[in-house]
Every structure is written in C-alpha cells, then in structure tokens.
Design a protein around this nucleic acid. Structure first.
Length: 516
DNA sequence: CGCCGCACGATTAGTCGTGCGGCGGTGCACTAAT
C-alpha cells in the first residue's frame, strides 16, 4: 500500500544509483533484497526529493538513510529523540564495521564534543537531539560541511512533543534552512491526520513524496474491558495476565503505580515482573530493558517512558491499565506487540475514574494566567529576557510554581513575540496559543474516549482516524467482532480447557479478599 | 478528581485523626558550586 501520488517521475538517471544501493544493501548489510517501501524511499531521496515515510516499526527504517549515506556525497544528520536510541543505532553501525559515525549529546564529554564538531567533514553519520541542533556552535560547525541528508527519526515527536514538551522539535525547519536546505527524510511508524499535517508543516515538507504503509497490524487483536471501579480493573488485569500468553507490557500513567502493580503481579501470580519509568536511574532503566529484551521477564509495568526504540519481536500482550491521551500514542504503544507476525493481543482496561487523569496531564502542560502576567511583568520591567536568557527565564518560572513543561512552553511563546508588542497584546496572544493547543489536545482525548466506547469494529474505527480503510478483517479482529480472550490463552490454560476462565476469576477474588 | 504526605492539635509522651496542598507523564541540556 504505497501512496505514489506525490512521487516525482524523473526516471532514467536514478537507475545507476539504485543499482549501487542494492549493492550496498547486500555487501554491507547482508540483506538479499529491499523490504516494502524501502526501495521507493531510497530511490526518491537519491533523486533529490524530500520524503515523508510511514513504515511499520521493525520495517527497517534506519536502512532508508543508512544506504543513501554510502552513496550520497556528504554527511547524514539524524535527529533522534533519545540518547539511548542514538547509542543503539551508532552501536549497530559500528557492528557492521562503520567507524565514521558519532552521536553528539550531553553524555559525551565536552572535549569529545568539541573534537566531533571539528572532524564533521570526515564523518558519514551524525546523530543528535533537536536541542543540540539549536546550539550556535553546533549549527556553525555543521554549516562548514556539506550535509547530504537531514533525517528526522521518530518524526511523530514533532507533533506529539514539539508543541509543549520539547519545543526544539518545532524549530527543525529553520535549522535545515541554515544548513543549506539538504534533502530531508521524515520517518515514523504511526501518524494520524493531525500528526501528518504537523510533520509536513513544521518540517516544511510541502513537496515531499509520501510513502505510506498502512498503520494496521492485522495480527494484533484489540479489546476493551469495561469495569466498575479500580479494584475490579485490577482483578481483570491479574486474570488476564494469568490466562494469556506472555511476555507482556502493562502501561500505566503514574510512576508509583508501576511499582505497585509489579509488586502485586509478582506476589499473586508468581510471574517474573519488573517496573520501568522515567524517574529511574539510566543504568537501572537499561538493566530492566535488557532483561525484558532477553526474555527474563514475563511482565513489565511501565509508564509511557518505555517503548520507543524497543524492538522485541515476541511481545504477545500489551495492556493499558490507564489509557494515553490520544489514539496516536495508543497505536504506538500497542504496536510494540507481536512484531514477529505471531498473535498479539492489546487490551485496554477501563474504569470510570481513569477519565480524570489525562485531563489533568494535559492541563499541567500549560501556564496559568497569573503566571503569564507575572512573566510579562518581568519582561516589561526589564528584569529578564526570555530570548537572551531562556534558561534563567524558565528557572524563574519554575521558582514561581510552574511545572517544567509549562515553564518551557511559556518561555518559548514569549520568545516568539514581535518586538514592541504591548503587555496586553502579548497576554492575549499567549492565552490564544494555550487555548488552541488545549482545544487540539482535548479534541484528541475525545477521539480516544469515543474509540473506547465505540460499538463498532474497533479496528475499523481506529483506522478511520488514520484516514485509512479496513480492507480485510483478520480472524481475530476485536472484541466488537467477537474475539475471545481464551483464544490467546497460554499453554497451561489451553490444556485445562473451558472451565478455566471461571476458575481463575474465583481464585483471584479469594486471593484479593484475604489480602487485608 | 483522588491520593499522598505533611503539619498540627488533642491528648498526656507516643499515637491518632483531621485538614490542607500539591501532584499526577514523556527528555533533552545545563546550571551552579565544589
């Protein structure tokens, strides 16, 4: 399902380049042939066309810029959202014998950073964060070399993180201009209509060719289990984990909850369980991630911190104990299941109380009006300048009670004000920006909730948000189409046949009642 | 919204209830003083 509508039809001269590309594929990467989508992407890039590509995860996205790296003349700059991802990818390239690859981030010693910037001309691949790309010294060094390709990996971050959490994502287009407008490749696995529009808009990819593989993962069955309250939801979770094939991921929205659930699951079900969230030490996160990847864990309870760049083929189950604030994030998270093409199950557990948390998480992204007035006061009295001292400005906002994201959002907004604007006009402008963003986020949340409560086929309803049509309904589609959890039962359960479901329910109820 | 932690007061010396306020998720880079 490749959308070739916008592909340029130059033809002819690119044949040579593609022959070389296939040679590189075989000789360096030891693959016999391209996978679906890869050839079109590489061919377009080699013809000098920008590309916006949506490929399923595990579909070999990195090859799409690695191979051009061996054919084009100049540096390939890859914007990556996570340091751990940069490390994994530079490591993978080193494994195949590539030495001309570096990652530039805060984990690299300042002296080494300086050395890297001095030797950019001799590198083939450079990984860095959007934040790093805004540092004048970095931009300066990059303008001195020829950048052949500008890659935005995990491009949905532009839309999902750029507006509030990591505003530097919205400034990539300007930086690309400063680098003499190299050919650009934006890569992601899932992008609904709005995310697509954001990517195209904020990366200035008006004339890019679109190579879109569908987001549907027919081998992942979808189900929502409605419960009365949280204790009942927990009971359902334990029952599910007891019954179905593992390993599995349990997503929740709070750090403490990941630990509590991991404790509970370990104690009640005797499964090898761990937790993972953004507040842990990086070395612990690595450790748990590796344990999960190598198969020494059955269940991982985690926040949304876990998942990006994780490529474990045999995850059989993804449970949402609490749901994310939009369908794009949801699809991203359940998409981690069953990459091997085997059966996968995505279960969203819902209790009425769950609807409150996403609302407050969205609200927490934005500064309050009194805080805006305070900040504008600092500016008008000449105390602080968000443009000249963004860090000090953000720090002062946080001292005054703003959360980090809200502080960053406000600092970024105030930097963009036209010179000489009145305080009243500035306030109106920021209020409007906040209002618009909240509208969008609450709109996305409503879509998510509508999907949870839909009576239609979940797959069909979900694909609709991604502007796709369900062409073929898989055998195990969704709860609305009549799947049964017992179809996903693990070996122990299948041996025991039909009355097992009743059995675990009663046993768990007994266990939970005797707990306190 | 609902939970958790903290301060506080009543009570009589360590505990216990109440009430209030803040927090809840994702990560880059950097700052400052040592």
């Amino acid at each position: 399902m490749v959308d070739r509508n916008k592909m340029k039809k130059d033809g002819g001269s690119s044949d040579d380049a593609m022959i070389r590309a296939e040679a590189v594929l075989r000789s360096r990467f030891h693959y016999p042939s391209f996978r679906e989508g890869q050839k079109e992407i590489i061919s377009s890039l080699l013809q000098g066309s920008d590309v916006f590509a949506m490929l399923p995860t595990g579909g070999g996205k990195s090859l799409c810029y690695e191979i051009p790296g061996y054919i084009l003349d100049g540096l390939v700059v890859i914007v990556s959202p996570l340091i751990s991802l940069m490390e994994d990818q530079t490591h993978a390239l080193r494994e195949i014998g590539e030495t001309r690859v570096r990652a530039l981030n805060s984990m690299v010693h300042p002296q080494e950073q300086k050395r890297i910037l001095g030797q950019l001309g001799s590198l083939r691949f450079l990984y860095l964060s959007p934040e790093m790309l805004r540092r004048p010294r970095v931009i300066d060094a990059l303008t001195r070399v020829s950048v052949a390709l500008f890659v935005i990996d995990e491009a949905h971050c532009v839309s999902q993180w750029g507006h509030e959490f990591r505003p530097d994502y919205l400034h990539l287009a300007g930086i690309r201009e400063q680098l003499n407008h190299p050919v650009c490749l934006a890569l992601t696995a899932t992008a609904d209509q709005r995310v697509k529009e954001d990517i195209l808009h904020y990366l200035h990819l008006k004339d890019a060719c679109h190579i879109m593989m569908g987001v549907d993962r027919p081998n992942i069955a979808m189900s929502v289990i409605e419960t009365e309250n949280v204790p009942e939801k927990t009971k359902e979770l334990l029952g599910l984990l007891h019954t179905v094939r593992l390993p599995g991921i349990v997503y929740c929205s709070g750090r403490v909850l990941t630990m509590q659930l991991a404790d509970l699951i370990g104690a009640k079900l005797h499964l090898r369980t761990a937790y993972y969230h953004g507040g842990m030490y990086p070395e612990d996160r690595r450790k748990i991630q590796n344990q999960f990847l190598e198969g020494s864990l059955d269940v991982l309870c985690c926040t949304s911190a876990f998942g990006m760049g994780i490529n474990k083929p045999d995850i059989r189950l993804v449970v949402h104990y609490q749901y994310p604030a939009n369908l794009n994030a949801y699809l991203q998270e359940i998409g981690r299941a069953a990459r091997d093409g085997g059966p996968g199950l995505a279960v969203l557990l819902h209790a009425p109380e769950d609807d409150l948390l996403p609302v407050s998480l969205i609200e927490a992204n934005y500064p309050s009006e009194p805080l805006m007035r305070l900040a504008l006061g600092w500016i008008s009295r000449g105390l602080l300048d968000p443009g000249k001292q963004p860090n000090a400005f953000r720090g002062a906002l946080m001292q005054s009670g703003a959360g980090e994201t809200a502080a960053r959002f406000l600092t970024d907004q105030l930097q963009e004000l036209p010179p000489g604007i009145s305080a009243t006009a500035a306030l109106q402008k920021v209020l409007r920006a906040v209002h618009e963003r909240k509208q969008t986020q609450f709109g996305d949340l409503e879509h998510m909730k509508a999907w949870i409560h839909t009576k239609r086929c979940r797959r069909e309803a979900c694909l609709e948000f991604f502007d796709e049509k369900l062409t073929r309904k898989p055998a195990h589609c969704c709860d609305r189409c009549g799947i049964s959890i017992s179809d996903f039962a693990n070996e122990r359960q299948t041996n025991r046949k039909s009355h097992v479901a009743f059995d675990w329910r009663r046993r768990l109820t007994a266990l939970l009642l005797t707990e306190k």
